[in-house]
Amino acid sequence: MTLRGDLQLVQDLINPGARVLDLGCGDGALLDNLQRHKGVNGYGLDRDPVNINRCLASGVNVVQQDLDHGIGNFLDDSFDMVVMTNTLQAVKNPRTLLREMLRVGEECLVTFPNFGHWQCRLQIFLHGRMPVSAHLPHSWFDTPNIHLCTAQDFEQLCAAEGFRIIQRRMVNQAYRQQRLIALAPNFFSSYCFYRLGRP
């Protein structure tokens, strides 16, 4: 199975044999790959019945759980890595959840679309419209994304909370790194990956 571009990158950032908790695991593709290729012991949380069936069909350990109700049922330090891909912007309490992720896991890995990307800025600035793009395909009225942020916003939150940024990858719409992005990441990257550690 070929992985969605962002998941391929996430997989590269996870150590073999790690204990992984995947928040909003979707159809379980990431965990399925991690189990097959990296000997990872993983669990995924999702609330969508269709996703849960797909996970069951591929033998992924999926637990039906709504992230908006928190992850308080997981013990401190029970995972090496808590992953949340493309979901941060859709949860009710992103800050609380990030704190929780670093309680449960030694590290966490968060990916999300960068609202500071120049195309987003242009759509608001020039057209006066809410941005729609490859990473933000929804119209304002039916988007699940209620907490969009820019890479800079996110880093400010990390600084305020004392989260340590261990690794950062800023990519374009094809999930590739580019020289331009290095110049002004918050302007040229459309998607970001953050690997965080505790204060």
């Binding site: 204990r19 012991n41 849960i52 992924v60 350990n61 999926v62 637990v63 997981f74 013990l75 029970s78």
Partner: peptide, 9 residues
Amino acid sequence: ITARKNVAS
């Protein structure tokens, strides 16, 4: 999960 067993729910 604490016991590291395979579980789906």
